[in-house]
């Protein structure tokens, strides 16, 4: 099945990837997409993950057509 993976902000710039379609077997957890897309790059401890625009845990199993996002800690509002 196919999922769409997106990276935001500092992660997108560092990895040089904004978005990618990827073919994965059934039962793939969200966190595993990271190692499939950026092999050799350790998953940052503070990275946040979303599935279809909702926060999810790394172990969430992806489904066909999901939009998955990886992004750094958020820094909105005023400081």
């Amino acid at each position: 099945m196919r999922v769409h993976v997106r990276f935001f902000a500092g992660l997108r710039e560092r990895l040089g990837i904004a978005g990618r379609e990827i073919e994965v077997p059934a039962g793939t957890p969200v966190a595993q997409l990271w190692s499939l897309l950026v092999p050799g790059e350790p998953l940052p401890e503070n990275v946040l993950m979303a599935c279809n625009m909702e926060y999810v845990e790394p172990g969430r199993i992806v489904e066909d057509g999901d939009e998955i996002a990886f992004f750094p800690p958020v820094t909105g509002g005023c400081r």
Binding site: F8, A9, G10, E13, A50, Y55, F71, P72, P73, V74, T75, G76, G77, R79
Partner: peptide, 27 residues
Amino acid sequence: MEELKSKAPFWKKEQLENSSRWVEHNT
């Protein structure tokens, strides 16, 4: 305000005099 700052997906990139940087964490 506190929920927005800690969880809403926004990211700040600051432009300094000669460089730029992503803000790593909120106060």
